[in-house]
Design a protein around this nucleic acid. Structure first.
Lengths: 218, 218
DNA sequence: GACTCGGGGTTACCGCAAGTAACATGCACG
DNA sequence: CGTGCATGTTACTTGCGGTAACCCCGAGTC
């Protein structure tokens, strides 16, 4: 270890990396996900090649950015999920936490939801074009897995619980995401109402509801 | 009207437009959503400016492409939604139709799920950067609205039905989407099982399930 | 027949962003 | 001193979206 003026390169590089991420964050949040590497470099007071040395390519930088925000959001979701209360209460709290987050910082949300887009590099010929479905943003996947784990740990639905938990985890997250996205765009109702409606859906109110008179029933 | 050799320009332009869309479809399905305008033009046997004359810009072309596929998928979903059967049956049929579609043609699916991305043109200064949430692919929105309408028409859940229907419509579509995306990537189970699990979720099995012994409950 | 007119087409270009050499500088260590 | 290494820069290449300017040819008109 070097204790003179020159800090050891590991720590120094890490600090620099964090600074660069801060700058990138500012730019991306200001200009949207299409911010250019030049712009980010300028904001950080340096030039492009340094960014590339640190993050490889644009995808790398964005991935690093996404991890930061994703971690933060996941942490608060976990807190809501772990609160000591009735199940329904906790589900509502989790929904509300997520919605409050995307409401408070839609730019972050929009950035995080951008699909990875870095799967197939130019000139890939191992697979013809792209075959897999894997399209969703990493955030959605991570939230889905996280929720799946919580469900599996705490719920007992007989045999096949594990499988069911994963399906439900991803399904619920998707429900939350799509409804939230729509709500954020149209703002048709206050947040609590949305939360209640979604929880009602999960509580089977759709299945129980009566048919409207006259129609063939739903 | 001109009945000589020269067809009237309207019809002719429409035919040409369809041909161009066919070509674009082939390329996009082969190369992914990043297919270049040059490549598409080449596939159609012409050059770029013609594409721009017909579709304005890349977004226009992609929108036209998306509308075609979206219409097709929506039509088959509507059929499943309208089949004469029990509610649960119909829900399962609809889920299965969607999943079968994305399973059969993941490239189309992936293309359709790409967010519009054309909202904020370069140089937009009416809003600072981007504020709204509106991120999801048009397909998701349209499916959500469609389902919402069906729910509202056929279900009676007392006052506020309309609002509830829209929330549920978008929520259910999102659930279907996220679960389908995950399933398509990992293939952890056969399709019918996924369908059953999702329907179970909508039928409130999560809410009814018992806590696992020992934990604080979920 | 000469002359314009308009649709379909092309070449050649602009601007811009990602990514990459290749070169320059400062600081520690032998 | 010279070597190594991290840090930084300028200047370039490549590829894409988008456009301007020109071209060709069949049709109608005088």
């Amino acid at each position: 270890m070097n204790t003179t003026q020159r800090a050891d390169p590991q720590t120094s590089a890490d600090r620099r990396r964090r600074e660069l991420l801060e700058a990138a964050d500012r730019v991306v949040l200001r200009d949207g996900p299409h911010a250019s590497m030049n712009a980010i470099a300028a904001e950080a007071g340096i030039t492009k090649p340094i960014l590339y040395r640190h993050f490889g390519d644009k995808g790398g930088l964005y991935a690093a950015l996404a991890v930061r925000h994703t971690d933060a959001l996941l942490a608060s979701l976990r807190a809501a999920l772990d609160a000591p209360a009735e199940r329904r209460q906790r589900v509502e709290a989790t929904l509300d936490t997520y919605l409050a987050a995307i409401e408070a910082r839609p730019q972050v949300y929009r950035f995080l939801m951008h699909p990875a887009d870095g799967g197939t590099a130019p000139g890939d010929q191992s697979e013809q074009g792209f075959d897999v479905g894997r399209h969703s943003a990493p955030l959605l996947r991570r939230m889905g897995e996280e929720l799946a784990q919580v469900i599996e740990e705490r719920l007992d639905v007989g045999p096949g619980t594990q499988q069911l938990a994963r399906v439900w985890g991803h399904g619920i997250v998707g429900m939350m995401h799509a409804a939230g996205d729509w709500w954020l765009g149209e703002r048709p109702c206050p947040r609590e109402e949305l939360v209640r409606s979604l929880a009602d859906l999960l509580w089977g109110r759709l299945a129980e509801a009566g048919d409207k008179a006259g129609g063939p029933g739903f």
